[in-house]
């Protein structure tokens, strides 16, 4: 049994309200307003310019980019991550969750997804090819942020859980050759919400279901499972 008294979870942060703004909580809208004021007041911009991080779950372009990015990162078909009829809409919860915590790196990742969309025959490849990769010592600070946020996003879709990307980074850079890439604990996370837990993909990729959330019927366990095409929208050859 684990010895780790894991952090308690938080529920999905509700959308920003006027009350938040009155109370001084920073929201996307206040950031935008502040950025506009800065732009108006500052004629001579200095490097780097103050820039609002302005992606929005309500903008189709941004949400499409998030779904494209997520499909590329997870290996799960985007029609499964974002079904045509999607009353659960976990993608919106995830979008807002990340955007609230890591706005700059998130915008950076969505930009990569937008700029490399529409690849054929595999739309994932151009996106994956442009993601920051390799030894942290060779990456810029913003690329490092994007690299680990991408991992957090994968873990979010797979587990319905939030692994803080800053904790996923190795504490010592460069790491010694052959050492694990991360010294973070796999048990240091918070469940994003009960809904997120039930939408997690890890055990669907395993042709099963999250523990405690079966949508199957009595006796299914005595038969071969459905194919990976049915679960994640893609055939995985046995023994791949």
């Amino acid at each position: 049994m684990s010895d780790s008294p894991h952090q308690e979870r938080r529920t999905i942060a509700p959308d920003a309200t006027d009350d938040d703004e009155k109370s001084g909580r920073v929201t996307r809208r206040t950031v935008l307003a502040g950025a506009a004021a800065t732009a108006a007041a500052t004629v001579v911009a200095v490097d780097p310019p103050a820039r609002a991080h302005s992606v929005d779950a309500n903008l189709r372009e941004d949400m499409d980019a998030f779904v494209q990015l997520s499909a590329a990162l997870t290996g799960i078909d985007k029609g499964k991550l974002s079904p045509f009829v999607d009353p659960v809409d976990i993608k919106r919860d995830y979008f807002n969750w990340v955007n609230e915590r890591e706005p700059a790196a998130f915008e950076n990742l969505l930009r990569i997804a937008k700029e490399n969309a529409g690849g054929q025959p595999d739309p994932a490849q151009p996106i994956l090819a442009k993601l920051p990769a390799g030894d942290d010592a060779t990456l810029t600070p913003s690329d490092i942020e994007a690299k680990y946020l991408a991992r957090s996003i994968v873990l979010m879709w797979y587990l319905g859980a939030w692994y803080d990307p800053h904790k996923l980074r190795p504490k010592v850079i460069p790491s010694t050759p052959g050492a694990p890439e991360s010294d973070a604990s796999p048990l240091d996370f918070e469940v994003i919400s009960p809904k997120a837990y039930t939408q997690a993909w890890a055990l669907r990729v395993a042709q099963a279901h999250p523990m405690g959330f079966s949508e199957m019927q009595f006796g299914y366990w005595a038969r071969e499972p459905d194919t990976t095409l049915q679960f994640i929208g893609r055939d995985i050859p046995r023994g791949a």
Binding site: G178, P180, S182, R234
Partner: peptide
């Protein structure tokens, strides 16, 4: 995802840190 080996299944050298189809295929396996 992270190139670690807590479960003793990621024993290749160097440890695999996977994304995309490679990750889903490995986890299914």
């Amino acid at each position: 995802v992270n190139g670690t080996n807590n479960s003793r299944l990621n024993s290749a050298s160097p440890k695999e840190a996977l994304l995309g189809n490679n990750l889903a295929n490995k986890l299914n396996d």
